[in-house]
């Protein structure tokens, strides 16, 4: 299915300068009200805006690198509706990497088939990975011309979802000589379940997981006990953590990480996360780390779409 067939000229916005992202969302929902999927379902515009805003509040959809994918699952929607906004003046979207966005793609999906929406997102990112196309389209202020460019690009949304489509960037990593307390602070502040340790070339050498950090505070013999609830007053963790607090990332990291290429399929990713119990998948381009995927990423992007 061509991406352009999901978008109408009316659901494209360009040349606007919204004050904030909420105004932009309002504008985009308004422009999409004429799309056939919304029109035929007879769902009030306010309900759609509510769903989109609620979703945005629960989780920021600014994925980084100047892209945002506000979306919502709308019960009763007759098909998939896609709207796009091209902002000549980048807008602060409070994205993960704090980079202002200039390409925003709103996706309204029916209850069923949420992976279709993910495919659209993947296609948009892939389409605009062509830097020349991206620059050209951002210069244009006529919606019809933008539509034609999208049509000519002939992008199909019937493509398998790959690691590069769902991986998280920007990337957070540490070096071997990073003190462990900095690693802990970084993981806690970013709510990460694992963090890669890379060399000066960006090649992954190992990783530090949350479980590994807990092991530092959990003496080995305790893991062999069948229970510890019989002890009411004894907390050795502080002592063990203190003993390890001067360690460096290189001393704590383990090499049992899972690395995949950018074209690894969704099936491979879910298999590694669930069956093999890897807390994090590191996406490599060549030997260089370019992204990370954890269970939260998959749940967020696919199951909880």
């Amino acid at each position: 299915m061509n991406l352009a067939t999901l978008i109408s000229v009316d659901s494209i916005i360009s040349g606007v300068e919204p004050a904030d992202k909420w105004e932009l969302l309002d504008m985009m929902v308004d422009s999409m009200s004429t799309s056939s999927a919304v029109r035929h379902s007879g769902i009030p515009q306010e309900r759609i805006l509510d769903a989109v805003v609620k979703r945005e509040h629960s989780n920021n959809t600014g994925v980084g690198n100047g892209y945002a994918f506000p979306h919502a699952r709308i019960p009763g929607l007759k098909g998939l509706a896609v709207g796009m906004a091209f902002l000549q003046k980048p807008l602060n979207y409070e994205s993960m990497d704090q980079v202002p966005v200039n390409i925003v793609c709103m996706i309204l999906a029916p209850d069923k088939n949420p992976t279709m929406a993910l495919k659209v997102m993947a296609q948009v990112v892939r389409l605009f990975s062509d830097q020349r196309l991206k620059e050209n389209i951002l210069k244009v202020r006529d919606n019809r011309t933008i539509f034609n460019i999208l049509l000519e690009a002939g992008a199909s949304s019937d493509i398998p979802i790959m690691a590069r489509d769902i991986m998280n960037s920007p990337l957070l990593d540490v070096r071997r000589d990073t003190p462990i307390y900095e690693v802990i602070q970084l993981m806690a502040s970013k709510h990460l379940s694992a963090l890669p340790v890379v060399d000066e070339h960006g090649n992954i050498e190992g990783h530090i997981t949350g479980a590994r950090l807990f092991q530092l505070g959990m003496p080995e013999f305790m893991t062999r006990l069948k229970g510890v609830s019989f002890i009411c007053e004894f907390e050795p963790f502080e002592k063990y953590f203190y003993e390890k607090s001067n360690s460096l990332a290189g001393e704590v990291m383990t090499s049992d990480f899972c690395a995949m290429s950018t074209v690894a399929t969704l099936l491979e990713i879910v298999y590694a996360l669930t069956t093999r119990n890897y807390p994090m998948i590191y996406v490599l381009e060549g030997n260089t780390l370019v992204g990370m995927i954890d269970q939260g990423t998959v749940l967020e992007q696919i199951i909880n779409f």
Partner: peptide
């Protein structure tokens, strides 16, 4: 003395 052996 404050331990609870029954919980073991």
């Amino acid at each position: 003395m404050k331990s609870l052996p029954e919980k073991a």
